[in-house]
Design a protein around this nucleic acid. Structure first.
Length: 118
DNA sequence: ACAATGACTGAAT
DNA sequence: AATTCAGCCATTG
């Protein structure tokens, strides 16, 4: 029963690989999944990731500029920032400071076929 | 089958 | 440098 994982499930699984204290972008996940133009769908997936199990560290996914564009979708608008700061990052005006230093690109660290068969 | 829905992005202005 | 536009595409009703 190796049913192909849905796109969203792949997004969840990819996001789970983001290391503690690092961040990535919607677009980076989309590119890793071979669908570079589906960044919006990655955001949509994060919205659904609430109900996913195992849990998804959705706070580690920001936009390409390091902005916490998803913060409104957490329990409170400050939750996302607090989670990141707890992991040692600094957030000012909804943006991760020194974003590039903390950016973690799945395509550089993971091999697609190690996770998915299609 | 078709239209609507987005936590986006790169290019144009 | 900041803001706007249009394309994007897997799901869902």
């Amino acid at each position: 029963m190796d049913e192909p994982l849905s796109f969203y499930e792949k997004v969840f699984e990819t996001a789970r690989q983001i290391p503690y204290g690092r961040v990535t972008s919607y677009g980076a996940i989309a590119r890793f999944l071979g669908s570079g133009k589906s960044a919006r769908l990655v955001g949509y997936a994060m919205n659904l990731s609430h109900m996913a199990f195992p849990p998804v560290p959705a706070h580690r996914v920001v936009n390409r500029n390091g902005l916490l564009t998803g913060r409104m979708h957490f329990e409170t608008p400050g939750t996302m920032q607090r989670c990141l700061e707890e992991e040692g990052l600094t957030v000012r005006q909804n943006q991760v400071l020194r974003f590039e230093e903390h950016f973690w690109d799945p395509s550089e660290h993971l091999k697609y076929s190690d996770f998915f068969k299609n």
